[in-house]
Computed example of a mutant assay.
Amino acid sequence: MSDVGFVPTPPARRERGHWIVEGLATQVRVIGALIMREVQTRFGRHNVGFLWLFFEPLFLGTMVGLMHSAHGQSMPGGVDPFLFSLVGYVPYFMFRAIINRAGSALHSNLTLLFHRQVTPVDVLLARNLLEAASVIGVIVIILAGGVWLAGVWPANPGLVFFCLLLMFLLCNGLAMMVAALVARWEVAERLVHPLTYLSMPLSGAFFALHWLPANLRELLLWNPQVSLHEGIRAGIFGDAFPSYYDLRYVGWCILVTTLLGLLSLRTARRKLEIF
């Protein structure tokens, strides 16, 4: 057999590739262990306690949907007001839960950060993945319930879950920035909770941009959450009413917040090591 054209991989490159794979595998194991620790810390070792992770957003979303549907007002395209409010609040719950818990994430896991394999990014990512999993699970329940009970099939499930993924990435970047800020100034944690509630009316969770004037619509689209809520509704309701969203802009926002979050956490770790 001829060896013409065969170029062996240099040993240094093979070792570097093996080191990268081994490092990624280690971080995956670390994050998995942190997720299990978070579940046991928050819900104990009882399986029923773990169900609260899914029950809380579903229950709160249902209550919000019932309040909005109690007015009895019809919506454009024959969209059910209960379902409209439910699929608006549940993704917002992901944003609120991730951001609100970010402030206490590092201090409550301070002893873990003395392990070389555990980084602030791992701690936050484990918490945030847990919150995202609960919301995505609830969305699956909602979509399945809509098909089974009302015969409402989502127009584009792929768009729904892609927007949920982008929502998680955006929240994760913001959470890293919040955690680093609280690590430097603990008083900032007291401002996070009211700010998340005040941002709810501007998030796009409970209104469609189609209902608003064009100039206000363009202004609100500077908030990446609005595009994500519009995309989720477009994936569920389809052409029931026009949707306006710019996922490319959302991607740039995710890139900026993630880079700023990683940089701020890098400087915040030195601050945490003092204690």
Rank of each mutant, 00 (worst) to 15 (best):
L58I: 06
L58V: 11
L58P: 04
F59T: 15
F59G: 15
T62G: 09
T62N: 06
T62R: 07
T62H: 04
V64S: 08
V64N: 11
L66E: 12
L66C: 06
S69P: 02
G72N: 03
Q73F: 11
M75N: 05
P76V: 05
P76Q: 00
G78M: 01
G78A: 01
V79F: 01
F82S: 12
F84P: 04
F84Q: 10
F84L: 12
S85K: 02
L86K: 10
G88V: 05
G88K: 00
F93A: 15
F93Y: 15
F95L: 12
R96H: 08
A97W: 02
A97F: 07
I99D: 01
N100P: 02
N100S: 12
A102Q: 13
G103N: 10
S104M: 02
L106Y: 01
N109A: 07
L112C: 14
L113N: 07
F114H: 13
H115V: 00
H115Y: 03
V118L: 01
V118I: 07
P120L: 04
D122H: 02
D122L: 00
V123F: 08
L124S: 09
L125V: 06
L125W: 04
L125S: 06
R127A: 00
N128M: 10
N128I: 10
N128E: 13
L130I: 02
L130D: 03
E131F: 09
A132H: 04
A132G: 01
A133N: 07
S134F: 03
I136M: 10
G137H: 09
G137I: 10
V138F: 04
V140P: 03
V140T: 12
V140I: 11
I141W: 07
I142L: 06
I142A: 08
L143Q: 05
A144W: 06
A144T: 14
G145T: 05
G151V: 09
V152G: 04
N156F: 11
V160H: 13
F161A: 13
F161T: 09
F162E: 14
F162P: 08
L166K: 11
M167A: 10
L169Q: 13
C171Q: 14
